[in-house]
Design a protein around this nucleic acid. Structure first.
Lengths: 249, 249
DNA sequence: CGCGCACGTTGACATGGATCAAAGGGGCAA
DNA sequence: TTGCCCCTTTGATCCATGTCAACGTGCGCG
């Protein structure tokens, strides 16, 4: 299934992101800015970068100097322990920001990997700070985005700390559904970009457990799933699952 | 339990936090500011608030308008699910900030509870934003603090997602040790301010499991523990524990 | 100063999810 | 188009941690 927005002939080196033309206003940074302000932002958001599936946008330990807005595509971020254990810390889609973790130490603290061919806007961080000293709306929006990330992380902590396997998967599917909806896609039908193992890592489960939970949801008529293609048959059913089950074992 | 804000002889309304005199420079917001800049900050950090043990600094759902710097004391933050399940999202000590989660929706998204008698500085958020538009250093430091919170949360996700019970507790103790050290206290000996149940909630474990892990660490000579008093006998021993164990079940 | 109760410890048992194993299925490359 | 490899599914078994229960213990209030 093609998910390409742009499959273009344009020479990339000099391409401007053109926030002014971008249809991600509501999702990305600019929100309620004047025309003049958006033009300033255009100058800051200097260029785009394309990544093929499997390619790293950045790696843990690399110097940080920019955050990235996803123009199209799908990413995962993960943290690795010395002994090789991986924790997927999030999946990011169109309009979301990547790299906020790097501000803290001026080095990236996780890896960001494209799960499909993707395109991002590079936003040099010092420029963004400069501009957000000039434009209050932008400053406030940026703070909200960072705070939203913290709140999101708390939700994941809740999920990992208190929920059982099936609740976790239900929460995961409902979250994806909601984010696809916000982007104008179907709330009920989508293709997963990540493997069962990556879902498992994100949810603190083994891939077999994820697979079994998918099968069980299917048996119960909550979803129809075939490989990476998921169709949610009962959103209320999934929601109900989360309220009625007790803490995990 | 009374939920009073003020229980002191001092007239609080006019008390200044006096960042200029505060010994938390390195931990809290001001860092490398000029004298004049710190005076501006003094004006923003309008007043202090005292809380007794058990008192809420704020609750999920309340309107957000300020963040708080802990001047002294110890807090927990937690999120509650409708069915009563609790996830402790963090423990905060002197010099750390509370309330960053509220920026996102302009409502607090978690509860903050004092685990001992505590004192905080109230920092009205819009004022802080105003000042950070004027003072680049302050702006940058604030962004780092928010980013650090995101990185911290990723660490907790790693802990909850991939570690076994004893690894989690070891990581928890080492983290406390390091933070006490940074505040000039002993790295090896401290009193826990929270119950086994709260530790368990934070670590995604039941209180019995936490208690057993403490006992086992003691048997192995890694710590000496009696109720809330903990003495770490071998920091390397605890660190080693985290590297050599395999993923959880 | 002493009592009561919340907190902590420990034991026995239950179980959810991990682990180990093996057999499809589908997408991508040649 | 075909073949290979990665991904997924499913089954059998095991084990870490949850659950239930009973007993200690020490702090705080009166």
């Amino acid at each position: 299934m093609p998910n390409r927005k742009i499959a273009t002939p344009i020479t990339l080196t000099e391409v401007k992101s053109a926030c002014s033309n971008c249809n991600l206003h509501e999702l990305c940074l600019p929100l309620g800015l004047s025309h003049a302000e958006i033009e300033k932002l255009d100058e800051v958001v200097a260029n785009r970068r394309r990544l093929k599936r499997g390619e790293h946008l950045y790696r843990a330990g690399e110097p940080f100097d920019a955050i990235y807005a996803i123009r199209s595509g799908f990413f995962k971020t993960d943290v690795l322990l010395e002994d090789g254990r991986e924790q997927v810390t999030g999946f990011q889609m169109t309009g979301e920001l990547l790299g906020l973790d790097g501000i803290s130490t001026e080095h990236h603290s996780c890896n960001a990997v494209a799960l499909e061919d993707s395109e991002v806007c590079t936003i040099p961080f010092l420029h963004l700070e400069g501009l957000s000293r000039e434009i209050q709306t932008l400053q406030h929006h940026f703070h909200k985005v960072m705070s939203r990330e913290i709140v999101r992380d708390h939700g994941v902590m809740m999920l990992l700390g208190t929920m059982r396997a099936e609740e976790r998967l239900a929460a995961f599917l409902l979250n994806l559904s909601q984010r696809f909806t916000a982007r104008g896609y179907s709330p009920a039908e989508f293709y997963l970009r990540m493997t069962r193992e990556e879902i498992g890592s994100y949810l603190g489960l083994k891939l077999e457990t994820v697979s079994r939970a998918f099968s069980r949801f299917q048996e119960e008529g909550l979803i129809a799933v075939q490989q990476k293609h998921v169709r949610i048959l009962s959103i209320p059913g999934l929601k109900q699952l989360m309220n009625h089950q007790q803490g995990r074992g």
